[in-house]
């Protein structure tokens, strides 16, 4: 039971990441592969605030969001100059740079050793050290992110995003400032990733840079591509599938080292088969 709750919490965190990334990739058509950087900044802010100062979880969460908003604004401004392959490549670059900062800003992040001993939140007398309570907390944040995202994509703002995805020049001709639309959705998406990061840090109670590498961004991208781009429920489905996949493989009974690699093989093959036979993902509404 305890283990199921653990899986459920991971699923909720990855669903949050997937839904938020879908806003940028699926709805706006920008292939961003830097989500783990914002996720990591959120996680590190919470970790550092909780271990090195007396502030509580929620202040650390809000600080994480503020920091991510500032950084994603700067990143977004640079990204606004690029399209297609180059856009993806520059997002790789930002992920690599932020990862290097986590790894090398020794005084603050403790380098590759990571930050241990992050405390679980406590609020209104409820102690979230209990995993079940923590799951509820994570779920509450996920529901907030999900409904915010749904509100965004169904609003007139969201319709402009989809128009940008289909034909940016055409919508620009109608007088929409596409650059600011792309920037705003990028920032919102990054801020949501920061929330997931805060939850992750305080749930696992230990973080190190390896959780926020480029490969993690690719994993989140795989979640939303599998579930389907341009469909928020698809991202939930994708997260569910990719979090449960290792558990399914566990029944096959490989040794633990091979097990981890087998998972990568399966997930690589899934991506290839999807691109060949179903590029829009399971329930997606947009093909890359």
């Amino acid at each position: 039971m305890e283990y199921l709750i653990h899986l459920a919490i991971l699923f909720v965190i990855y669903a949050t990441l997937g839904v938020s990334l879908n806003l940028v990739v699926g709805y706006t058509g920008l292939l961003s592969v830097t989500h783990a950087a914002f996720y990591g900044i959120g996680a590190y802010t919470t970790a550092i605030f909780l271990t090195k100062s007396g502030v509580g979880f929620f202040s650390s969460l809000v600080s994480g969001i503020v920091i991510v908003v500032v950084i994603s604004f700067l990143v977004g401004v640079v990204l606004s100059k690029f399209k297609g392959d180059y856009y993806a490549l520059v997002t790789f670059g930002f992920n690599a740079i932020i990862f290097a900062v986590f790894l090398n800003w020794q005084n603050l992040t403790n380098g590759s050793l990571g930050v241990p001993g992050i405390s679980r939140p406590e609020l209104f007398g409820i102690n979230f050290a209990n995993n079940f309570n923590f799951l509820i907390l994570a779920l509450i944040f996920f529901v907030l992110v999900y409904f915010a995202s749904r509100f965004i994509v169904n609003s007139s703002f969201g319709r402009v995003l989809k128009a940008i995805r289909e034909d940016e020049t055409a919508i620009a001709v109608f007088g929409y400032k596409t650059l600011s639309f792309k920037l705003v959705v990028f920032i919102i998406s990054a801020a949501m990733a920061a929330v997931a990061g805060s939850l992750f840090a305080s749930y696992i109670t230990f973080i190190d840079p390896s959780s926020f590498q480029l490969t993690e961004s690719m994993f989140i991208l795989a979640i939303i591509i599998l579930g389907g781009l341009g469909n928020l429920r698809g991202s939930i489905l994708g997260a569910l599938f990719l979090i449960l996949l290792p558990e399914i493989l566990r029944f096959v009974g490989f040794s633990s080292d091979i097990d981890a690699q087998m998972r990568q093989v399966v997930y690589g093959i899934i991506l290839i088969l999807l691109m060949l036979y179903r590029p829009q993902g399971l329930i997606g509404e947009y093909k890359l």
Partner: peptide
């Protein structure tokens, strides 16, 4: 994305 799959596998 397909090449990402190839790389991973």
């Amino acid at each position: 994305v397909a090449s990402l799959g190839v790389m991973t596998a």
